[in-house]
Simulated assay, not measured.
Amino acid sequence: MSQSVKYVNPEGACPAQGLYSHLARVKAGEMIFVAGQLAVGADGGVVGVGDFDAQFKQVFKNLGDVLKGVGCDFNDVAKFTTYLVASQHIPGFMRCRAELFPSLFATDMYAPNTLLIVDRLVKEEFLIEVEAVVRARDPDSAGDKA
Results as ranks from 00 to 15, higher is better:
V59K: 02
F105M: 07
D53A: 13
V85W: 10
C72F: 00
V46P: 03
E11S: 14
L115T: 07
V47M: 11
K145F: 04
I128N: 05
G50R: 01
A98C: 06
E124Q: 08
K27Q: 15
Q17F: 02
A24P: 05
A16E: 09
V8Q: 04
L116W: 03
G18V: 07
G12Q: 06
K27R: 15
Y20M: 02
R137V: 10
L19V: 03
Q58D: 08
D138K: 00
P102W: 06
G143A: 07
F93P: 00
V59S: 01
A24Y: 07
V122K: 06
D65L: 12
D43C: 06
K79G: 09
Q3I: 04
G50V: 13
F33A: 11
K145Q: 12
M1S: 15
G92F: 02
D108S: 12
F60L: 12
P139C: 08
V85F: 09
A24N: 12
Y110E: 13
L127H: 09
E99Y: 12
A39R: 07
S87A: 15
V40A: 03
P112R: 01
V59R: 01
A106R: 14
F93R: 03
Q3C: 07
D119H: 11
S103C: 01
F74L: 06
D76E: 10
K61L: 11
H89D: 11
A136N: 09
V34K: 07
F56K: 00
C72V: 05
D76T: 13
N9R: 01
D138Q: 03
E124I: 08
H89C: 01
E131L: 12
G18I: 01
V77I: 14
V66Q: 13
